[in-house]
Design a protein around this nucleic acid. Sequence first.
DNA 1: CACGATACTAGAACATGTTATAGTGCATGG
DNA 2: CCATGCACTATAACATGTTCTAGTATCGTG
Lengths: 209, 209
Amino acid sequence: MPPKANPQSSEIPTPKGEEPGSPAQRDRRKRIIDATLALAASGGYNAVQMRAVADKAEVALGTLYRYFPSKVHLLVAGLAREFQQTRDKLERTTIPGDTPGDRLVFVLGKTTRALQRDPHLTEAMVRAFMFADTTAAAEVELVGGLMEDMFATAMGKKEPTEHDRAIFHLIADVWMANLIAWVSRRASASDVHQRLELSVRLLINGTSS
Amino acid sequence: MPPKANPQSSEIPTPKGEEPGSPAQRDRRKRIIDATLALAASGGYNAVQMRAVADKAEVALGTLYRYFPSKVHLLVAGLAREFQQTRDKLERTTIPGDTPGDRLVFVLGKTTRALQRDPHLTEAMVRAFMFADTTAAAEVELVGGLMEDMFATAMGKKEPTEHDRAIFHLIADVWMANLIAWVSRRASASDVHQRLELSVRLLINGTSS
DNA sequence: CACGATACTAGAACATGTTATAGTGCATGG
DNA sequence: CCATGCACTATAACATGTTCTAGTATCGTG
């Protein structure tokens, strides 16, 4: 009796709800992302070299590629893990601010400052995110979903409308574009903050005053 | 008698107003960008291989690197040339639309459709633009300036205020982010169009209806 | 337990961006 | 005219992402 439909063999898809694989595999995956983020934090995108990641994670190069088919996948998965943490923390916090817009600005500001505290790490993750090609589209969308979650949480919208989500998307675009500008030294931290605030004012509050 | 200040030797900076170098050099530079864009159009980012560019432009690899210090510089310079053309054409055209916002939407839509007619070329240029690191910041800013010019022209603002420019910047961010999403098949052409329209409505017109 | 499949390892091999080397031609100032 | 310096050429070398190969280990299943 062949199993009805279980085409998961030899594939390691992105974990959606449940963690896939044996405990040893989950551990390897964790070690790999740990190694990736450690290298990224120390020297940015260029320091994340596949051989170095494999060494530090104590897996063979081939194994690394079995888990993550490219450097970009790896770094975007790292960004996803970071954002998951951020989102989960957010969901357990009370966010200050009088209006939903204020709360969103608060969350954006706080998260941005946290990212800016680790410039190399941020550079590595954000550049990979932006550079991602079609083969990493799923991972990038995952991150997009996390940003949406964060914004929805910030604004206290448990079930955002289609219009809400469209706005979140725009804000995410502006956010990432400004982070890229910041990591390539085309924008200062205060530029980034001001632009985020302006976007939220115009996109959420609908006032330009 | 040393020349007062002419540190241009052995440097080939981005041409600002006037074209630098001998005619032969200007010709080489043109051939290089032509070759780059041709390869990009045929196979996208991956097809723009430095040896292939050098061959097609009939220069030695070392010469290619003397003109453009990296693949990203090369492709961003290509994008700059394309946008220069677009901007110049715009400045000679009458743009339809009842309001500045309408005209901006028109220009964004038209330019986006033009880019989408050459998916590989767009993929190559936009991914390089997003991936650019600090060493290519100047080239990226050049492109940013061209986008500002285009938007200002579209809206008939010959001398935009600081606030105008801030808004242009946000729209450019949204535009580029959506192009990236489009080239990596995370957004359809109509997604892109709708988001651009929404951004302009909210950022320029200040109405969400 | 024994077997077969799948996963892992070590290492080589390959692809392509980038840098370095040696030689050639050409233009420019003396 | 000549010497000097610079740009260009051809080519090799190097760095790192990615793929491939052969052997070994591990895991689930009859």
